[in-house]
Computed example of a mutant assay.
Amino acid sequence: MSDSDLIKLYSGRILELAADIPHLGRLASPQASVRKRSPLCGSSVTVDLQMAEGKVVAFAQDVKACALGQAAAAVLGGAVLGRTAPELAMARDALKAMLKENGPVPAAPFDGFEVLLPARDYKNRHASILLAVEAAAEAAAAAQASKTA
């Protein structure tokens, strides 16, 4: 990766997002908790959430990732409250398609993932970018399943 490629990839907006991640930390008593780790780079994200009436009502995330993973966690953190498990699964799938298949930017309220479009060309960064939304989708599904079990 050349210096100019790195500069393009780590834009000012990505660094701003990485510096201001909403809902950092852990919940005292989460309904569901999921930890995801990228074996390639070692980034990890742990998501805690609580749901009520099928929607996320409390959310926290412990993010130990590169700036791209942090930026993705920031976008997720800004949109996660009030979302359903199917909405989080759709956001995960749309982000994955945007990165890996040149798909469109995820629909609102997850359209902030657009900032990560330059990362499409850097496949080794995709896993880190996907960690937070994968963990949130899995935690929401687990919380829903525990309600119906």
Rank of each mutant, 00 (worst) to 15 (best):
S2T: 11
S4K: 06
S4L: 10
I7C: 11
K8C: 10
Y10Q: 14
Y10T: 14
G12W: 12
L15C: 13
E16Y: 11
L17V: 13
A18F: 11
A18R: 08
I21D: 01
I21Y: 06
L24A: 12
L24I: 10
L24K: 11
S29I: 09
P30E: 08
V34F: 00
V34G: 03
S38C: 09
C41V: 04
G42K: 05
V45R: 00
V45L: 04
V45G: 01
V47R: 07
V47L: 11
V47P: 08
L49V: 04
E53Q: 14
E53P: 06
V56S: 03
V57F: 09
V57C: 13
F59D: 06
Q61K: 02
D62Q: 13
D62W: 13
D62T: 15
C66M: 04
A67D: 14
A73N: 05
V75I: 15
G77P: 11
G78I: 07
A79P: 03
L81M: 10
L81C: 08
G82A: 06
T84F: 08
M90Q: 15
L95Y: 10
K96D: 11
M98P: 10
K100T: 14
K100G: 05
E101A: 09
G103M: 01
G103N: 03
P104R: 03
P104N: 09
P106Q: 02
A107M: 08
A108H: 06
G112N: 00
G112V: 00
F113T: 00
F113L: 02
F113W: 07
P118V: 12
Y122F: 15
Y122Q: 12
A127W: 00
A132W: 00
V133P: 08
A137V: 01
E138P: 04
A139W: 00
A141W: 02
A142N: 06
Q144T: 15
S146H: 14
K147G: 15
T148E: 14
